[in-house]
Design a protein around this nucleic acid. Structure first.
Lengths: 138, 138
DNA sequence: TAAATCACTTGTATTTTGCAAGCTAACCAG
DNA sequence: CTGGTTAGCTTGCAAAATACAAGTGATTTA
């Protein structure tokens, strides 16, 4: 009970990563930000049926973990933009692997072109996605 | 209420994959089976502090999803071995990417050799891990 | 200035998870 | 073959996480 945050359950990097990412919503939120160019609260909330209090909580945790940053939108004072940091961008490979696996075994709705590149042209696709995700940082 | 299991929240492959994998324990269990050669209930239960009822539930879900199979141990009738299927083996890349990211940003306990290969020699490491995971299938 | 929008907050109900204990079948030692 | 031990669960209950619905305050737009 001492520290403000819970202790990691172990020092295995997979288990530690899952302390942050291992729930039903966090990686869906990051998918929106990193692959979907959805960066405002309402854009993310609209996409799948995440409850707004859960979304608030996930965004705060990701900010505290240094994976996202929150910025005001200069064009609309009500709006905030959630943008990836460097460590956030480096979660793109995790999402790509999940996408490839999920497409093969759970669903088949990835555009064929994207999927083909994820498998056959992985490095170039990653570079492109990182660029695209980084560009809209403002 | 038609199907025995809940409907997927969407047909996005990432969201669908997370319907199965997106919780605190499922990927830790798969880490034990796929990377750690831990294949019995008690080996997996001992490793981190997972509750036994949760472990039972996760193993059942993974079997139902076709990611693991349960087999009796011919040497000990009490014991069961949880072994990966083909689709289970193909989750190794997801675990590797999580490990690389977790090591960089959340923890630093991966053996340097393994980590170096995960980054610089990815394809050969994957092939080797798949082989090793497959070998002990019996 | 009134209505709409955005990003939350606040209850409350439901679901999931953790913890401790017990239970059954299979093995093992004497 | 008997008694103790081990493996793999199951059960009951408490605690935590999540969903759902409604409301709030600060903008912005009409």
């Amino acid at each position: 009970m001492p520290s403000g945050k819970d202790m990691p359950r172990s020092n295995c990097p997979i288990a530690c990563a899952l302390d942050l990412l291992g729930d039903r919503w966090t990686l869906v939120v990051l998918r929106d930000v990193l692959l979907g160019q959805r960066r405002t609260f309402s854009e993310i909330a609209a996409d799948e049926g995440i409850a707004t209090n859960t979304l608030t909580d996930r965004l705060e945790r990701l900010i505290e973990a240094g994976v996202l940053e929150r910025r005001r939108d200069p064009r609309d004072g009500r709006s905030r933009r959630y943008v990836p940091t460097e460590s956030g961008l480096e979660l793109i490979p995790v999402l790509i692997e999940l996408m490839v696996w999920g497409n093969k075994y759970m669903s088949r709705t990835v555009p064929a072109e994207l999927l083909a590149r994820a498998v056959g042209d992985r490095d170039a696709l990653l570079a492109e996605l990182v660029e695209r995700a980084r560009d809209s940082d403002d």
